[in-house]
């Protein structure tokens, strides 16, 4: 009775419902596959790099991380100078970029008149939009000659003779080198760090700041004693994000670092980073050991940035979780 009594209209309606349910399942699964693709991509990158880097690790063992030789003629390779260059340039970048970014974020959130806030933050963010290769050209052809002629000799003469710190600033004033690379990296990561800082600073509840002003704090005291402690985790996240960018930056560094596989104390020496070595030598690498060693360098870089960026993400998530909580 029930089945037979269904009208044609009812049947077509239920067929329609069935069809749209099928379409729903299809749509949902297509989007799921796309999302899983992101995960698969990350795994594929790791697997491909590990597999192709394996011959180099197998051949050189732990020596790959501790040796200083990079000798294509004898097919002997090790990563120490590149890892050293990568870490030192990024460290210089952080020393310069973190205080400057803090200043910019402070200016935008606390000091600037409202009409000035948006133009200034847009301008700073435009620094991030300029392609890395442009920084490289500018660094090599414009900045380095001026720096080598006017600034470096002065630094070498005056600071180079200081105890302890002096050794960092010795050697011929070439303009290019590790310090120049670090400085340009700093300019490149300032927009990333300052925009995170600006965002987390604006999360501080107005009541907190007003209370501090109410008991007579100066603007600086409010920022240093209230805003910064409240946003500490987020600020660290922003710094890690900038560090992750600095570690992997390629073209700008390739132009100005001098590309030499040597290890020196002075920051004015020429050096190399993992990324600059890849950019310079990958297409010219002859023989499986050479290529494999370069891919091994790429894997090391990927792992270092992975850890740094993961840390950044975790810190920012903690900041976000705290912001969502009722306190």
């Amino acid at each position: 009775m029930t089945v037979l009594a269904r009208s044609a209209a009812q049947r077509s309606r239920s067929r329609q419902a069935l069809r749209s349910a099928a379409a729903d399942v299809l749509f949902r699964n297509v989007t799921r596959v796309a999302a899983l693709l992101v995960l698969a991509l990350m795994i594929a990158i790791l697997v491909v790099l590990v597999v192709q880097a394996w011959p180099a690790f197998h051949r050189f063992g732990w020596h790959f991380f501790s040796g200083r030789e990079w000798d294509p003629a004898h097919a002997t390779f090790s990563a120490l100078t590149s890892i050293f260059g990568t870490l030192v340039t990024s460290a210089i970048a952080m020393v310069i970029a973190v205080p400057v970014s803090f200043g910019i974020a402070l200016f935008i959130t606390e000091l600037a008149p409202t009409w000035l806030r948006r133009p200034v933050s847009t301008a700073v963010e435009l620094l991030a939009a300029i392609p890395s290769i442009i920084y490289g050209m500018w660094g090599l052809f414009v900045f380095a000659p001026l720096f080598g002629e006017y600034v470096q000799p002065w630094i070498i003469e005056h600071i180079g003779s200081w105890p302890w710190v002096g050794v960092l600033f010795q050697g011929p004033p070439m303009g290019i080198g590790i310090f120049t690379a670090g400085l340009i990296l700093a300019i490149m990561v300032i927009p990333f760090i300052s925009s995170v800082m600006r965002d987390v600073f604006s999360l501080v509840p107005t009541v907190l700041k007003e209370s501090a002003y109410g008991v007579g704090c100066t603007t600086w005291e409010v920022v240093w004693r209230v805003v910064l402690p409240y946003t500490r985790v987020g600020v660290m996240g922003g710094i890690m994000l900038g560090l992750g960018r600095a570690l992997g930056e390629t073209m700008a560094v390739t132009f100005v670092i001098g590309n030499s596989h040597t290890l020196g104390v002075s920051l004015f020496n020429a050096g190399n980073t993992i990324s600059s070595t890849l950019a310079n030598e990958f297409t010219e690498a002859v023989g499986p050991t050479y290529t494999s060693s370069l891919i091994a360098l790429g894997l090391i870089l990927f792992l270092i940035t992975f850890v740094v960026l993961a840390l950044a993400k975790l810190l920012l998530l903690r900041m976000a979780a705290r912001e969502g909580s009722p306190t």
Binding site: I45, S275, L309, A312
Partner: peptide, 13 residues
């Protein structure tokens, strides 16, 4: 992480 991963490593991949 992919968003900020070094682009040169993507090239190597």
């Amino acid at each position: 992480i992919l968003l900020s991963a070094p682009s040169i490593v993507i090239g190597v991949f």
